[in-house]
Nucleic acid binder design. Sequence first.
DNA 1: GCAGAAGCGGAACTACGCTTCCGCTCAGTT
DNA 2: AACTGAGCGGAAGCGTAGTTCCGCTTCTGC
Lengths: 189, 189
Amino acid sequence: MRSDARRNRERLLDSAARLFAARGRDVQMEEIAADANVGLGTLYRNFASKQDLFVEIVRRRYLGLIDLAERAESIDDPAAAFRAVFVGYLEQAECDSAFQLALLGGSDLRWEGVEEQKALFAERVRRIIERGVRAGVLRGDLTFGDFPALVCGVMSTMYFKPSPTSDWRRHLDLVLTALETAVPQGAER
Amino acid sequence: MRSDARRNRERLLDSAARLFAARGRDVQMEEIAADANVGLGTLYRNFASKQDLFVEIVRRRYLGLIDLAERAESIDDPAAAFRAVFVGYLEQAECDSAFQLALLGGSDLRWEGVEEQKALFAERVRRIIERGVRAGVLRGDLTFGDFPALVCGVMSTMYFKPSPTSDWRRHLDLVLTALETAVPQGAER
DNA sequence: GCAGAAGCGGAACTACGCTTCCGCTCAGTT
DNA sequence: AACTGAGCGGAAGCGTAGTTCCGCTTCTGC
């Protein structure tokens, strides 16, 4: 691969990541190319479509989540480990509205190409949650299946009600209360 | 107003409501007109733009929420009253993805034209929440300001993870736990 | 330094969906 | 029954944004 071609590819990934993060999925291809000081032809030689580019950006961001889960899993205190993934997940999505949308499930993103990363992350989270439940620091009926909905819930505040004051952290606190409250069998509802 | 014109307007509102509900904000104007057995010209004579039509549909749906809040407020038990608005809000949005999106805050919906309805609803909810807090059935630090984020959170599950099994109700249960748990001053975090 | 292939730029093409426009029709009136 | 303008249909216009294409440029190996 020619050196200038490699440099251009880097630049494109860079610009795309920054622009998607700042303004969401609907920045224009032309704008990304311009930001990278590159022609549209070059952009399309590297990524067959906007969708492909977007998936690649999301895949790279996902690597950060895997890393996060890994670090969280190595925390001894089960309650702290859970908080670490839960809060860390949201913090990594903060300041990146395209990633938020992808994680929420909108954007028609087909996850092929990110499946592998997703599974790796999920497995670690599952273990962290199960450990928390066994240790009695998370409500007894909590399962891994609840995780997507819960983070998605808090993230929706981040996505739909963006505010300089991090309103989502208040929402997060409320939700964490629910998860860290032991609920005796059949007490609720 | 000519009788056929009135009938056409009814038909249009009908078709638009149904199609938006089923497939979200991006059904085409042409399709709405066709569904109502009416030409595009007629559609545009009644609603100056797609946005206008959408706002009108949302406004009508909002009337149902006001009604809901009114009924909830007349419930004696403060806990039951709160559950009624909270759950009712979500149930009214179920099966209507356009309304969900509007309530979430996406869809670039400008709320002018619905402001009035919105304020009416908000006022009632505020009273219900304050009553619940005073009665000690809702956590002490809960305020009306938390409401939008909380319902938005559960609704995001409804919107982004549609499933025939109402997964959002599980999410709802978890969140309600948090709200109905009295949190002593400074106990959390 | 040169050949030529790999890479580049960006004008043009295309698809899609909202909106406009205008000649015709028909409900309501006399 | 005749009249007439409010109302109608849907073809055409327009803007936007993704994608293609091809003549030109530039890097690299000899």
